[in-house]
Simulated scan of single mutants.
Amino acid sequence: MIKKIDSNTMGKKNVGWLKSTFHFSFDEYSNPDHNNFGVLRVLNDDIIQPNTGFDKHPHSNMEIVTYVIDGEISHADSLGYKRTLSRGNVQYMGAGTGVNHSEYNLSNESVRLLQIWIYPDIEEREPDYGDFRFDPNDRKNKWLHIVSSKEGDAPVKINQDVNFYVLELDENLEINFNLGEGRQAYLVQIEGTSIINQIDLKPKDALEIIEDSINIKSTKPSHFIIIEMKKS
């Protein structure tokens, strides 16, 4: 089963310094038919203006992954970590029993990133942090496995049975992605345009995929993320 989620139907917020597209219910945006997709609870496409950002605030009992699309984001948290990440880099925060963090764009260019929240396998774990800087060539015209469970083999490991893959596909190239029995995935067209199983996708559109295989053909240079998980 494959279902398209058109970005025009998603939640939107623009408060000047922050412009967001909400794939699922978040903040003032409520969509009872789209609160989550399996263990995927939040996927926000955020654009943060220069010299602004999220002041220090708390989280708990959520696995939080940030994927940077453009620009640089500077992170600081109550665990003592301070990092600045750029395009293609991944940041992970296991909020567990509680952690405070801030995220700032300290540059003169806007930042675009995906903020992704995953329900943990067990609540009240000790908080954790990690990040990884990937070689962009490793996602060029091939799937790059960036996030897995703690038992998986991706560089970034979180407390849930999920896998994140990213891909940058040159124009007019094709690639497949196959889901096994009992698995589902959420795909986002981050940049560019494509045709997937005869479905046209534009930037920020998404697909829900359940126990199915897809063929992707890029009609413009394209950038994708897939979040694969156990079928709910």
Rank of each mutant, 00 (worst) to 15 (best):
M1L: 11
M1Q: 10
I2D: 10
I2R: 06
K3W: 11
K4T: 03
S7F: 13
M10I: 03
M10D: 01
M10L: 08
K12R: 11
K12V: 14
G16Y: 06
E28Q: 14
P32A: 02
P32V: 12
D33Y: 10
D33E: 12
D33M: 10
V42N: 02
L43W: 09
D45C: 08
I48F: 14
P50R: 11
P50V: 11
N51K: 14
G53P: 01
F54A: 07
P58V: 05
S60A: 07
S60E: 15
M62I: 05
M62F: 04
I64Q: 00
V68L: 07
V68N: 02
I69K: 00
D70S: 05
G71S: 03
I73W: 00
S74F: 03
H75L: 04
A76S: 12
A76F: 03
D77P: 10
D77M: 10
G80C: 06
K82W: 11
K82F: 12
T84L: 14
T84W: 12
L85A: 06
S86L: 13
N89C: 12
N89F: 05
Y92F: 10
Y92A: 01
M93S: 03
A95R: 01
A95P: 09
A95D: 09
G96H: 07
G98Q: 07
H101I: 07
E103M: 08
N105K: 03
L106Y: 13
E109V: 15
V111I: 14
R112N: 11
L113E: 04
I116M: 07
D121H: 11
D121S: 13
R125F: 12
R125N: 14
P127V: 02
P127C: 09
P127H: 04
D128A: 09
D128S: 12
G130I: 00
D131N: 13
R133H: 15
D135P: 05
D138F: 15
D138R: 08
R139T: 06
R139I: 05
K140A: 13
L144E: 06
L144K: 12
H145V: 08
H145I: 10
I146V: 05
V147L: 03
V147W: 02
K150H: 15
K150G: 06
E151H: 11
A154F: 06
A154P: 05
K157R: 04
I158T: 02
Q160F: 01
N163C: 12
L167H: 04
E168T: 09
L169K: 03
N172A: 10
L173E: 15
N176Q: 13
N178C: 12
L179Y: 09
G182Q: 14
Y186V: 08
Q189G: 10
E191P: 09
S194Y: 14
S194H: 09
S194I: 15
I195H: 08
I196M: 06
I199Q: 12
L201R: 05
K202N: 11
P203W: 02
E211R: 03
I216H: 00
S218I: 02
P221N: 08
F224G: 00
I225K: 00
I226T: 00
M229T: 01
M229P: 01
K231Y: 02
